[in-house]
């Protein structure tokens, strides 16, 4: 391990980055898993509910908004992650890089 790496490792900001970013990634992945497999399980085991119209005089079933919702969730979660990464992780990374090269 070279000097720069040693400095990074000793930097509390690096520890903070590791402590925050990876677990955040896993939490977001877990939400995605929960949403997607929740949808798949509903589709597989609660067919009746999925095929029920959202109102008695309508054709649109619950499955449609839920399905489109999964697609939108994917985009929204990605957006949330990118926003936090831009606002919080990037400045941390920039600090770490700058402080390591002093």
């Amino acid at each position: 391990m070279n000097e720069i790496e040693k400095r990074v490792l000793a930097n509390p900001k690096y520890q903070e980055l590791i402590r925050k970013r990876t677990p955040y990634g896993w939490i977001m992945i877990s939400i995605m898993f929960f949403v997607y497999y929740g949808f798949v399980l509903l589709v597989a085991f609660a067919k009746g509910f999925i095929s029920t119209p959202i109102a008695s005089d309508m054709t649109t079933t619950w499955g449609i908004p839920l399905g489109v919702g999964v697609i939108l969730t994917t985009i929204i979660l990605t957006g949330l992650y990118v926003r936090r990464a831009n606002a919080e992780f990037d400045p941390l990374v920039n600090d770490i890089v700058r402080e390591a090269q002093k």
Binding site: W26, F39, G67, I71
Partner: peptide
């Protein structure tokens, strides 16, 4: 109909995995 949507959703959900853990 709806089955096609289920199929399409499958193709969507790999992307967050790439974003959160792999891409950067």
């Amino acid at each position: 109909g709806f089955d096609g949507l289920i199929y399409a959703i499958g193709f969507m959900v790999g992307w967050p995995l790439i974003t959160f853990l792999i891409g950067e």
